[in-house]
Structure formats: structure tokens, C-alpha cells
Design a protein around this nucleic acid. Structure first.
Lengths: 154, 154
DNA sequence: GAAATGTCTACAAAATCAGTAGATTATGCC
DNA sequence: GGCATAATCTACTGATTTTGTAGACATTTC
């Protein structure tokens, strides 16, 4: 399970991605529109700012903007910023490698090889899926599915 | 990251899978050989027993045995027993579906579609990889890699 | 019946998660 | 310059989960 914080982050970025790319959007606006606790969202956006995903403007008419196009922000990079390493084992992390203290020998570890495959499968999806993809898939699903009572009465 | 407990469980099962299928192995033996705290391992093996992965014998000459061949125990089922649902979002869990309370509408959710793919990729690996596979991969790696100074001196 | 095993329940320290609180700083507008 | 409106920063807190420990109990074998 990903953290609640990561969910908020991804949905906040989706909110930013919808609508004008040049028009800053305020924390409170995003918070209410996406059901995110405002003070919590502040921290999240600060994290995303430090990592170069968004930028901010202060003062009146201030707010947040995407720094990159939504099609260039992957789920993988956001998850890494918010939740930390993606790997299922510390000894498989690219960004935060750490040897398992109880395990002796990574070659002889019976679980590492399998989780290596898991990690690769995960990364393949996470780094090929962008915020833009998420929005696109959602819109597509909404356009197809809810065809309620096909207004054919004229 | 999977939990320490899940790591222990998978490595304990690997230990059971190595060696005689009819010969019970004691908790303490597994614990020391795999660097697992004994009392913690007790609980883990009990969980695995309740779920029909292993069985136990009491008294002298007692211990634990695999109930199924190692080639029929998948990483996925073990992980589910020890760590709970595999899905990255509650609304994507097969065994423990729960709607996200903040999200309105799963079709319109911008992140659910992407994580659905992540979940499928994960499950594909986890349920096609068995304890026997883990052991096999480890043994293979050990046989290939450490070729130290190729004893060719006669 | 004693010794060796697994079984069960409860507890507890540490870490992580999911926020809250409140003071501070920068910006635009009058 | 001063006020309103935003973001920024630091610290704290309550709940939950993780990673174990402790100790009494039950069962089997010799």
C-alpha cells in the first residue's frame, strides 16, 4: 500500500495538471477540491517543490505551478519523493541501497532474486506512467462507462 | 518495502524446503540458521500453519514440515498471509477491497487506473514465483558467480 | 514423569503515519 | 508604508504498526 500522503501528492499534481499551465493555483483551492487537509497538503507541496516538480509564487495571486509538463512527471518519481525507496527490499533499492543486516550474501539469498523481478516489473509501470496518463485514463473511462438511459426520446 | 516479518517467513520456508521433505525441522534450528529471533519466528510459523502452508509436530522429534511442495508455494500467497493485501490502493485489493474514503468515483480517479497496472504487474511476478524458484535462482547464481582464481595449476 | 517440543496471550519499546498549531516571510495592492 | 493574502518553516501530537519479549500452557516421546 502506498501512503495517504502519496495519494494526496499524486492527486494534487493531477489537479494542477488540469487547467491552465500558466495560472497558479492556491493550496486551499486544491485542498478543498480534492478533499485534502490543507496543512498537510502544504507540506506535500513543499516536498514536491524542493525536488523540482512544482514551483510556487507568494503573495496575492500566488500559488503553485507545475515545473514540467504533466506528461513528463512519472508516478515513480513522485512516489520516491513522498514515500521513499520503491524497492521491496533495502538491498534492491537504487536510490537508497542498504544491505539486509540479517542476510549473509546477496547471491545466496533465496528471496532477493525473486524480488528483483518484482522491483523491475513495478518500475517498468511506475516510470512509464505519467500524471498526464492518469488523467487521460480517467477521462477515457468516464467517457465510456456511464451511459445512463441514452436520451433517445425525440 | 515488505516487512521484516515477511522476509523471515519466506526465508524460513526456504530453509524448510531445503532438505528432507519428511524430516521435521525445529523452530530453534531454523531460527539460528537463518538469523531469526526465535520467539518471533514461532508466531510466524503459527500464521503459516493456520493458513495451511506448513504443519507441525509436537514433543521430542517435533518441528515443522511443508504441507505443499515448495514449487507450489508462491511468494504472493505468503506475502498476503504475513503482510496483508498486496494491492497499492485499498480500492484495488482483491482480498480486502475497501473504497478510498476521500476519493469520489473510482472511474474518475486519476491514480487508480495507473496503480491497477502496477498491481497486475506485481501479481504476475509474485504468483508465478515459488519458494522452489527462489532456491533455484539462488543456487544458480552461487554456481555461476564466485569463480575465484579458477584452480588451474596442475 | 521428565524433557523437549510447539501453542497461546499479553505486553512493550520504537518507528512511522497522518495530521495540527502557530509563528514567520514574501508579494501585490492601496 | 501598511494591510491582506499567500507560501514557508519548525515543532509537536495522537494513533497505529512494527518488531520484537515474556511467560504460562499443552502435547508428545522416551
Amino acid at each position: 500500500m502506498i501512503s495517504q500522503k502519496a495519494k494526496y501528492a499524486l492527486r494534487a499534481l493531477s489537479a494542477l495538471a488540469r487547467g491552465d499551465r500558466a495560472q497558479p493555483r492556491q493550496i486551499s483551492e486544491i485542498a478543498t477540491s480534492q478533499n485534502i487537509p490543507k496543512k498537510f497538503l502544504e507540506q506535500i507541496l513543499l516536498d514536491l517543490k524542493r525536488e523540482g516538480i512544482v514551483r510556487s509564487l507568494r503573495g496575492k495571486q500566488g500559488g503553485y505551478l507545475l515545473l514540467k509538463p504533466a506528461a513528463e512527471i512519472t508516478f515513480g518519481e513522485v512516489l520516491r519523493i513522498i514515500d521513499g525507496p520503491l524497492a521491496p527490499l533495502p538491498c534492491l533499492s537504487i536510490t537508497a541501497y542498504r544491505r539486509c543486516d540479517d542476510c549473509d550474501g546477496e547471491l545466496s539469498c533465496e528471496i532477493r532474486h525473486v524480488f528483483h523481478r518484482v522491483a523491475e516489473a513495478e518500475r517498468a509501470v511506475l516510470f512509464s506512467s505519467t500524471i498526464a496518463d492518469g488523467i487521460h485514463l480517467a477521462d477515457e473511462a468516464m467517457a465510456e462507462a456511464p451511459r445512463p438511459a441514452e436520451t433517445v426520446d425525440g
